[in-house]
């Protein structure tokens, strides 16, 4: 919002501001409005939280109550027992999801940070073009990426491996977090870098000792974003995983059985998919939304 000030100055309301009619519409109106605002806020809370609440509730319902809308029931752990080592075991998929998301994040963060630093601190031929091109890759439909990789990985014997999924996930993650990190690096003060350089700090040291710690909050947000994107990814594992590298969102389909959907187990598995992401999201909530738009606004 760098141009707020200029817009402000141009705005007629800001120029003509005679002080009059200052205290009208107080009293009854104000209370009514405050009341409406509280109601609206509660409605928002309901809208945001209810699906999560309902899934959590269903996860603890006995199978025969899964379809009932009762809020009071005898809670059971059956659904969790079923997906942890029981008939619908999902522990393998859980491990795969963690491994793939962690590996994707570890690989993509250094790449993106270097690129973000370059985009932020240098002007060079193709600067704008490359930045836009990186963003534009996100318009490519997933199938256009997954299909060629399906045939390529087949030749390499990499179908249904973690490596395959990490490689393809990079196509999703690197562009976004480059964009996101550029926003954070833009916001870092130049003075410290200049001082470091004057002290004879090499580029590697500068990046590692100065930029990385300064950008740490941004890197954390980027890591969370990267983890979240890989964790939630559905299309790539659908194409490229079978059993060994199957991730949780795809494994949810296991609970759609020929006999019908096991909704109680689905809800328990849903909690498993959801909970880590909810916690991570809460940790970075301050910067998360900003981060997504910052790269463009600045």
């Amino acid at each position: 919002m760098t141009d707020t000030a200029t817009k402000l100055a141009k705005h007629p309301a800001a120029i003509a501001a005679p002080v009059r009619r200052q205290r009208r519409r107080r009293g009854g109106w104000a209370i009514g409005r405050a009341f409406l605002r509280v109601l609206a806020t509660l409605a928002i809370l309901f809208f945001v939280l209810f699906p999560i609440f309902w899934m959590a509730l269903t996860a603890f319902k006995p199978a025969r109550d899964a379809f009932s809308t009762a809020v009071l029931f005898t809670p059971t752990l059956d659904n969790f027992l079923a997906i942890f080592g029981g008939a619908s075991d999902l522990t393998g998929a859980l491990v795969n999801s963690v491994l793939i998301a962690v590996a994707t994040t570890i690989v993509s963060i250094p790449l993106a940070l270097l690129a973000a630093y370059a985009f932020s601190r240098y002007r060079f031929p193709g600067h704008r073009g490359m930045l836009l091109a990186i963003v534009a890759t996100q318009f490519i439909p997933g199938v256009a990426i997954a299909l060629p990789f399906l045939t390529l990985f087949r030749s390499l014997g990499l179908i249904d491996t973690h490596l395959a999924l990490v490689v393809v996930n990079l196509s999703l993650v690197v562009p976004y977090i480059t964009w996101l990190l550029k926003g954070f690096v833009d916001g870092l003060p130049l003075e410290i870098e200049e001082a470091a350089r004057l002290d004879g700090c090499t580029q590697v040291n500068l990046l590692w000792r100065v930029i990385t710690p300064l950008a740490a909050p941004g890197i954390f947000v980027a890591a969370v974003f990267s983890f979240l994107l890989s964790w939630n990814e559905f299309l790539f594992p659908t194409f490229l995983a079978r059993t060994e590298a199957e991730t949780l969102p795809v494994a949810l389909m296991t609970l759609v059985m020929p006999e019908g959907v096991a909704w109680g187990q689905m809800a328990a598995a849903g909690l498993l998919v959801m909970a880590p992401m909810l916690i991570l999201a809460l940790l970075v909530r301050k910067h998360f939304a900003e981060g997504m738009t910052m790269g463009a606004v600045k």
């Binding site: 809370l45 699906p51 559905f234 998919v273 999201a281």
Partner: peptide, 17 residues
């Protein structure tokens, strides 16, 4: 503080729920 939560839910799971 809670607004961020729904975005973090996997789209495939949103569909099921």
């Amino acid at each position: 503080a809670l607004l961020i939560l729904p975005f973090a839910v996997a789209p495939a799971l949103k569909g099921f729920s």
